[in-house]
Design a protein around this nucleic acid. Structure first.
Lengths: 194, 194, 194, 194
DNA sequence: TATGAATGAGCGTTCATTCAT
DNA sequence: TATGAATGAACGCTCATTCAT
């Protein structure tokens, strides 16, 4: 009984997210309308809000799963053997996160939850990112005088900085990756090697 | 005549900003409503938009002037002679920038202007910050293998990262400054010295 | 200036009420939708709520003005010379008030305002009704041992009672007026005359 | 078996009404939500509607039983020997009926059923009220030129009127009973005696 | 410059009721 | 009987921004 009921719930939820994905692939994230999603999913508006606290909660999930998919690919990579290789490995993630200003804003807003119990998909990916990056930091050609975790968090900080600048007229002549690389060299290479 | 008119214009503008400061000191930045500002200033709503392109332009100015006041103090300081001293010097700025989530978001949004000609007060402070910090980077106890500008930008990136984390339940057990210090040590000290 | 602005305001308000009247004449009161009213009036939804606190406030006005129109007619009548004549005089009002259950419920709900400053059109008509009826109570064929005002309020009480019963299966075989008459006889005639 | 099943049915129903009474005693009638009732009763929402046609049916029952309890007390009273005594006898009923605006509205709405077969608890109390009051109308100090039933119905009308006014800012300076008494004197006393 | 009524698109809400299991 | 996810149709609201005067 309970199982059957859950199946129905999951199905409805899946129809909603599927409809949302369709809308987004056609119009982008910023233009997604709840009304349009429920219309396509063939469910009532009330149902939407029974499944998602608000529109942002759906965005959190959809963007979170995209980030996770990209991280799944990252995880398959061998530890990058050079800074340019590292930048290359990070590029798909940065590309997605900056695909729309709206997406980047959602990500920033959800990067940290105010309440521990409210930690959502996007916030989780920030932790996962560190877990993926940390082992890469142990490569011998990189500095080894900091903990892998801290080095990884530094990479994260430089990435966010580079992405934020990409929306800025003063800096968007340089491509994202080009802007990141010199900082990572300075951050990650043993001194005297960069 | 022109002078008289300009004087009136400046006065109206001053009344608007003054009213806005009052509202903010009572309710905070996020709760500021244009309606309330014009009510207190005793002018019509349309007048507000004759003086400010939009609400954000006022916010840009108000937050920018606060940041500049803090930077005026920073500028008086001698180059910090240690990482903890540097962190101390940066703390007032970080305190203000994280006083409200909304303020932090405004700052991020305005850190880079979409159009070069639209570089506003907040965006200016980002440049000024680098200018203040760069000379500090030349201190002999810090690494000298990167340009002062890049080192300063790195400090900026770590600050933003630390501030972003301060809104996050998973990390806000550590105070802002404590979170920043180890990263700056790793970023700024000659390797082998931290 | 102020006059011109007020004229515009009044015009918009008039368009809204006019549109509402149209909708009601076509579909009845209960079926009136705010959305439809603003659509027909050619104004934005926000404008509706700038003019009326809520849908009920518009209903209050529309129903109030209908009641007032009926009372305008009542006011032209000479004091009824018999109970049946009195009942006849009251019938148009009762007919309208019971035209829809929804209308009767609105009237009851608005008959008394919780706050004095919130006394709206419908509540006002209750006072006006007493003022119209009171002089009628001075007719010589009616009992004169109570104040006209009290006698009038009694008539009001019996009317409301009769109207409430008209929505009731147990009583709606008798027409409204027939139900009212015996009570008014007992209430208004000198004893021994009914 | 049938007995067992019926027992379970009755038990569920009892749990629902009991839960509803709890909710009402804590939050009042108007704030009662079906959701909260079923939560407390530990049953599913659908179960509620297997036991009660709709929410109003439960309200009808709960309010009806309260009115009946008050009428049980009224029935014990000897016929009031004066108008003030009569008013006193009616006061507990009026107090309850005006405890919440919502309650008064429910009572009015249910005072007459739309369908004869749907005469519910509240509607029944209206009949019972007349039955209790009618004998009281035969007291020698009251007018005897109207049937006891009609006199009783008049009392009912005046009570409802007084109660309706109690929700009105314009009239709620006078207490309920004070507002009722002069009308009953005029309605019930032989003319020349009031 | 100043005015302030009007805009407007969409979000979130409400919550009694239904219905397939 | 019992379950509980789904329904659904408006309403109210938001509030920065525009524009005719």
């Amino acid at each position: 009984m309970t199982t059957a009921v859950q199946a129905r719930t999951l199905k409805t939820r899946a129809r909603l997210t599927e409809a949302a994905r369709d809308v987004i692939s056609e119009t982008g994230y910023a233009a997604m309308r709840v009304e349009e999603v429920v219309r396509r999913a063939g469910v009532a508006k009330g149902t939407f809000f029974a499944h998602f606290r608000d529109k942002d909660a759906l965005m959190d999930q959809l963007i979170g799963e995209r980030i996770n998919a990209i991280m799944d690919d990252m995880e398959q990579l061998p530890p990058p053997s050079s800074i340019p290789a590292l930048v290359n490995a990070l590029t798909p993630l940065m590309r997605f996160m900056t695909c729309e200003r709206y997406v980047f804003e959602i990500i920033l807003r959800h990067s940290g939850a105010a309440e521990k119990k409210e930690v959502g998909p996007i916030a989780m990916t920030f932790g996962r990112f560190i877990e993926i990056l940390s082992p890469w930091m142990k490569t011998s050609h990189l500095r080894q005088d900091g903990s892998p975790g801290m080095l990884a968090e530094g990479v994260q900080a430089f990435m966010i900085n580079a992405m934020a600048l990409s929306f800025c007229a003063l800096h968007n002549d340089t491509p994202l990756e080009g802007r990141l690389q010199p900082y990572l060299e300075l951050w990650l290479l043993p001194q005297g090697k960069n």
